[in-house]
């Protein structure tokens, strides 16, 4: 290791004096990695449906959908978008933006759509 790296203590030591079980004992090298459950799986495993509905949990404290009408803004400029292009599915503000979106390559269109979670996801 380079001296400047050592001096900056950039690298986390593998052995910690204050630990009862070291990292290398817990996660030995060459062993299959622990598959950590993602939040979705954690929530599923919590079985919230088995508890009384008035008991608070991670899921039922979520906000409900907005009561306001959905704000439609131009995907490119952020202006208010009265128009919608059925071909690219993008919203746009005026003729100039329309010209732009029609000249956009498809992957850019998809990235703009992905910004508001509306892109076509191929699985």
């Amino acid at each position: 290791m380079e001296p400047e790296v050592v001096e900056a203590e950039l690298v986390l030591p593998t052995h910690m004096k204050f630990k009862k079980i070291q990292m290398y004992e817990k996660y030995p090298k060459g062993q299959a990695r622990v598959r950590w459950k993602h939040l979705k799986q954690i929530i599923q495993a919590e079985n919230y449906q088995n508890f009384p509905p008035n008991e608070t949990n991670y899921v039922n404290i979520e906000s409900p959908p907005s009561m306001h009408p959905c704000k439609r803004i131009c995907d490119i400029t952020g202006y208010e978008a009265p128009y919608f292009d059925p071909r690219t599915k993008l919203r746009y503000a005026n003729a100039e933006v329309f010209k732009v979106i029609r000249s956009l390559p498809n992957d850019y269109v998809q990235r703009y759509l992905a910004l508001r979670n509306a892109a076509v996801v191929l699985r």
Binding site: P65, S66, H68, I73, L115, R116
Partner: peptide, 13 residues
Amino acid sequence: PNLIGIEQAGLDE
């Protein structure tokens, strides 16, 4: 939040 496709209420709501 619906600007980024999250269908939930915003801070004020």
